[in-house]
Write a protein that binds this DNA or RNA. Structure first.
Lengths: 241, 241, 241, 241
DNA sequence: GATGAATGAGGCTTCATTCAT
DNA sequence: CATGAATGAAGCCTCATTCAT
């Protein structure tokens, strides 16, 4: 019996187009900033018509929110998956933040994007605000962290984190600086430097992203446009005298 | 002997106009944000013509930078003046931050403005970046703070501070939250909670601003436009028979 | 003997779809006006896809012309049928116009639509331009009307009629006004007021439209959307304890 | 003593620019119709920048209303001035309408414009609605017209008039047609054909407009663009074989 | 036939900046 | 210096129409 798979096919196409637009948006936001007029660049980068854009996103802001969520959540989920197996809340938290910074270093696009988005990146809807409180609460229960209002802890971590990522994106963050920030953040939660030092002494296995992940795909395009290999027209034939 | 005081008078007029424009700019930035289109509103609020504006500031950005510096430095200088007399670096730092938050609470305009400006508020040129390192270094020398790269400490303090002020501007910051943030920040520098608690236990004498200060003048206009007392026509004239 | 009735069935389906689209178009034209962007609303109202629309009408204008003709001619034919049995041209004309106004009052959708279409409603192709001249000529021959160029008489009747229907659609036309307009129009043809009065004194039996007529079907939907009875969920289900 | 006449000069400039825009608007509306997108053409015709337009009119509709009022009222005032000296209301009314049609014939631009505007031309704010009722009322008082609701008389006159002007603009209105329309309109008010005939027998002295009037100025440009004399580049030299 | 995503020309509107008065 | 009209680049958004499935 024949099925009409047109609906499914159509839905898949829609999803693909959405991704295409989000990828383009990430590139452009990272480049031009979040408050810039972006639509023209996005449709150019996506190779898509003006009208198509408006079939998916009504405004600049809607696009930013979607891009931020998609990327942010992909990242947070990966991190959570990784740290889930660690044995203490402090380890989970410290490693999570460490991974966050590490990914930002490995993917300049991400750092730029986050730096541009700034505080809004941590808007509601960001999974950070789902997971961080859990680790904090567990840490308090275990006696690893001092008791404090969740909001205060969150704001210190997230606020500091934003500036750190901004430094990373500006190329101003060396290992020593990052280490110090991590220690400082852990101390602010009441976790002693020595134990934090021990946690951070272990080598960090970098997060591994799927080749189809938004981050990797966008990163690749980002690097390509930084040092364009000009694959199309290999190189202009050098003229001789 | 007769002096030509026209130049001096002219210079004074220029300075006054500049202030007028900065006041208007602060109001508008606090209201509409930093990336908004602002000039129209500014000249309206200042009661001044388009052309005049351009005699003082060449661009939007110049205006923001000037406003930010003027306001930020007025604030920082007041704070520094106050804390100078305190006996320990930790006390100076803790009280300074405390005053910062306190002023933000008393002057919603300031909180809004800072929240809008975000991380850029802490750009170079901001006196924070002159004074904070001094307190930090002294604290380390005295053994009050652990040793860490200045940049790391600054970023934790400033980054957290931005989010805190944002909370204040959104009306989400109660005393408990603020206290926790202060403790957390001090801890992140290696200063123990108990001693920080002691420091913060003393009542805080609010900063006192001159009636002619940028902050007070702008604040007043800001509050006026929030609940307009309609000074012009006190009440509709009752009709007689 | 077996017949292939697929062609007939297909033709019927086509006709039904055409009607569906015309109904939707009438609703939308009456609501949004003739020059508005209409296709989106039409396909929504018709519950049909974009592509389907273009299988039936190539452009906006084609749709308007079709809708106008379909509705206008249905109306004119009904009126002519009714007045055919009257004994004098003056009676036929006066009653015809009277019916026109009466139907406009009973079907606000019609009034709105005609008011929106305006003078173009009376374009060539409208049966008015077929029938009116006949009555006028007969009236002249019988000595009821003065002799005058047909075009002049038509323009007075149609021009006035358009404004009258506009008044009706705006709810500004009471009985007295309508009566005066009818008398005025008859006078303009040379028919004395007293005799016109006598003609108009007879009660008017409202035109009766088939339930399947374009007018009635569209009117019903129009009224439904004006005061939606919310047939789907008759009333919010009361919660129990 | 020196006065600052800058304000006055500025106001004059503003008024001139407004006129420039209105002239351009009339040309464009007459050409493209009232519902067309017009702003681009208007600024081109006025030789003015996009931004300037928005300094004077916010929307298409605002522009139309202003143009319609300016032109309509100029016209009505001229007509009223002329007919004021006539001795009877019927003469004033008949001559007024006659002049209206006559001006429409002499100034095709006017006819086109009015035909395009259609019923809306007679919106509130149009002086017609100020003056016509006066003549009608006086006519009734004098026994020249039958008594009828003012609105009914107005709608017959204005409604018919719109179609007549449309005929004129289409070049379909000959003398006989116009005469018949005038007789018909007078009859509709209860004024007998014979007397109307007498009124209309007198030759009509055409209205005389100031060279600076909106009508004349715009008319001139309109005729110029119809048969462009190409004064700038005299004519391309004809090529020979 | 029916579908609905994609297209892109066509129009709209704002606003930073200039400049004659 | 102050003024404010004029500018026009830069964005924004809609919607009639096409076309692959």
């Amino acid at each position: 019996m024949l099925e009409d798979h047109r609906p499914r096919v159509a839905a898949e196409r829609r999803a693909r187009m959405r991704r295409t637009l989000l990828e383009a948006a990430l590139l452009v936001f990272a480049e031009k900033g979040v408050d810039a007029s972006v639509i023209d660049d996005v449709i150019t980068a996506a190779g898509v018509s003006r009208g198509t854009f408006y079939n998916y996103f009504r405004t600049n802001g809607e696009l930013l929110i979607a891009a931020n969520e998609e990327l942010g959540n992909e990242l947070v989920r990966h991190i959570e998956e990784r740290v889930a197996s660690l044995s203490t809340p402090a380890a989970r938290l410290a490693t999570g933040i460490r991974l966050y910074f590490d990914v930002s270093r490995r993917f300049p696009l991400l750092a730029h994007f986050l730096a541009r988005v700034g505080p809004q990146a941590a808007g509601p809807g960001n999974l950070l605000y789902t997971y961080l409180p859990v680790h904090l609460a567990e840490g308090v229960k275990r006696g690893e962290f001092v008791e404090m209002p969740t909001l205060a802890a969150l704001d210190i971590i997230v606020g500091s984190g934003i500036l750190v990522v901004t430094r990373i994106s500006a190329g101003e963050a060396d290992d020593k600086y990052l280490h110090a920030c991590l220690l400082g953040l852990m101390r602010s939660l009441g976790y002693p430097s020595e134990r934090a030092d021990a946690l951070l002494a272990t080598p960090l296995l970098p997060l591994d992203f799927d080749d189809e992940s938004l981050l990797v795909r966008t990163h690749r395009r980002y690097m390509d446009q930084k040092r364009p290999k000009r694959t199309r027209s290999p190189s202009p034939a050098p003229r001789r005298a």
